[in-house]
């Protein structure tokens, strides 16, 4: 647990952070994914630029039907935010299920999604709820949908030297959304995490969004499962059809290991889809 030598500096603005990062530098926010990797020497930056105290990256606002979360907002802040709880409870739940309180006090949403651990919780909620990731580099800024942001195992659309400045979500106070997970008993990361976002018209499901993580190499949007729910009254038959469709949705992305093989994770994705729907409608 002895990292290679590196320099450290704290940035006070997005511009100064971008200017400081250099060729083999890394931004550090909570450090809860980066430092373990450095201690194992899986990551060997020569420069750390600390972005955790940049005010512009910290806040959470809700205006014009748009929830905006700073790239360096912590999981604890998001989980406790009334604005997030109202506009997107699934994300508040996902952030509230990250690690333990100490991890949530340090870890940030930007760091979490930049790291793109397949077993992470927040990405699944972000993909289901249609989030947009706002990115800034030395050459300007751009935005990308959460669905496109996550590319593969530990791989995102983020380019070297780019910073996630904020994450925005449509306000879905009029929908029912939830995130549930089956935690790994050792790490408490997700073996399977499922997020759903439903719009109901009376007893009929008018719109559905479903995403799965943990069981997959990245958070995957599940159109087939969503289609099986739309138009139904979320009855048992619809739920079973959705669970069956879900295994096709995630089939290409499925992952597993000796302890929790793909077959188990795939089956649990269906089980937790039902549990997510019941949590959302409960």
């Amino acid at each position: 647990m002895w990292p290679q030598q590196f320099d450290y500096q704290r940035a006070d603005s997005v511009e100064s952070a971008l200017a400081a990062i250099g060729d083999n530098g890394k931004f550090i926010a909570g450090g809860h994914s980066l430092l373990p990797a450095m201690k194992l020497r899986l990551s060997t930056p020569d420069q750390l630029v600390d972005i955790s105290r940049i005010d512009a990256l910290r806040g959470i606002t809700n205006g014009n039907g748009n929830l905006s979360i700073g790239g360096a907002a912590t999981h604890a802040e998001i989980a406790a935010s009334a604005a997030v709880g109202a506009a997107c409870p699934a994300l508040a739940q996902a952030c509230g299920m990250v690690g333990d309180q100490a991890v949530r006090n340090f870890g940030t949403l930007g760091g979490n999604i930049a790291h793109a651990d397949p077993a992470s919780d927040p990405p699944t909620a972000l993909v289901a709820c249609g989030a947009t990731i706002h990115i800034q580099g030395v050459d300007g800024s751009r935005s990308v949908s959460a669905q496109d942001f996550f590319v593969d195992l530990f791989e995102t659309d983020l380019q070297d030297g780019e910073l996630i400045t904020s994450i925005s979500l449509p306000d879905c106070s009029d929908c029912q959304c939830a995130y549930v997970k089956l935690p790994h008993p050792a790490s408490r990361y997700a073996i399977v995490g499922v997020a759903v976002c439903l719009k109901m018209d009376g007893d009929t499901c008018a719109q559905a969004d479903v995403a799965v993580g943990g069981a997959t190499v990245k958070a995957v949007k599940c159109a087939g499962a969503a289609a099986a729910l739309v138009g139904s009254s979320l009855d048992d038959a619809a739920l079973s059809a959705a669970a069956a469709a879900l295994s096709d949705d995630i089939g290409d992305w499925l992952t597993g290991d000796v302890a929790y093989p793909e077959a188990y994770r795939s089956a649990m994705a269906g089980v937790f889809l039902k549990r997510a729907i019941s949590a959302a409608s409960g």
């Binding site: 790994h184 008993p185 050792a186 790490s187 990361y189 302890a259």
Partner: peptide
């Protein structure tokens, strides 16, 4: 301890 499960 990510994979080896200590009791909690």
């Amino acid at each position: 301890m990510l994979d080896y499960c200590m009791p909690k």
